[in-house]
Computed example of a mutant assay.
Amino acid sequence: MKLPTFDMLKKACGASRKRGRPITGEEFDRMIEVTPKVVGNVAAESWRLLLRRLWTSGLRISEAI
């Protein structure tokens, strides 16, 4: 089996890497509200707890992992 190859884009001289922006409080509230629809009712509370801890501590997903 042969793996596909991809041409990587080169970074332009002096160009900075775009970063994501922090979510707003309203976006966070909406995310907490729809958690059961995404993960189901059984797992919703544990996911809400994780999301709240990430939110209050300022951790990124990669740091939580």
Rank of each mutant, 00 (worst) to 15 (best):
M1D: 15
M1Y: 15
M1S: 15
L3A: 05
L3R: 09
L3K: 11
L3P: 00
L3E: 04
L3F: 02
L3S: 08
P4F: 02
T5S: 13
T5D: 14
F6Y: 12
F6W: 13
F6A: 05
F6Q: 11
F6D: 07
D7A: 13
D7N: 10
D7C: 00
M8D: 13
M8W: 10
M8E: 13
M8S: 14
M8I: 14
L9Q: 14
K10F: 09
K10T: 14
K10M: 13
K11C: 09
K11E: 14
K11N: 12
A12P: 13
A12S: 11
A12D: 12
A12V: 06
A12Q: 09
C13H: 12
C13I: 12
G14Y: 08
G14R: 02
A15I: 01
A15P: 00
S16Y: 04
S16L: 11
S16V: 05
S16E: 15
R17I: 15
R17D: 15
R17G: 09
R17V: 15
R19S: 07
R19I: 07
R19Q: 13
R19K: 05
R19W: 02
G20A: 07
G20V: 03
R21F: 05
R21C: 05
R21M: 07
P22T: 07
T24L: 04
G25T: 00
G25E: 02
G25D: 07
E26F: 00
E26T: 03
E27M: 09
E27R: 00
E27A: 01
E27C: 00
D29Y: 00
D29T: 01
R30N: 01
R30W: 05
R30L: 05
M31N: 03
M31W: 00
I32V: 11
E33N: 03
T35C: 10
P36W: 01
P36Y: 06
V38P: 07
V39G: 01
V39L: 08
V39T: 01
V39M: 10
G40N: 02
N41S: 12
N41Y: 06
V42K: 11
V42F: 01
A43Y: 06
A43H: 11
A43D: 12
A44P: 07
A44G: 06
A44I: 05
E45D: 15
S46R: 15
S46D: 15
S46P: 01
S46T: 14
S46I: 14
S46N: 15
W47F: 06
W47P: 03
R48W: 00
L49Y: 03
L49C: 07
L49H: 03
L49D: 08
L49F: 04
L50C: 06
L51Q: 12
L51V: 09
L51W: 06
L51T: 03
R52M: 08
R53Q: 14
L54Y: 04
L54F: 05
W55A: 09
T56R: 09
T56E: 15
T56F: 10
T56S: 09
T56C: 02
S57H: 07
S57Y: 06
S57L: 02
G58V: 05
G58D: 08
L59F: 13
L59C: 15
L59N: 14
R60I: 00
R60E: 05
R60A: 09
R60K: 09
R60V: 01
I61K: 08
I61W: 11
I61S: 04
S62T: 09
S62V: 05
S62P: 00
E63Y: 04
E63D: 06
A64H: 02
I65E: 12
I65G: 13
I65Y: 03
I65Q: 11
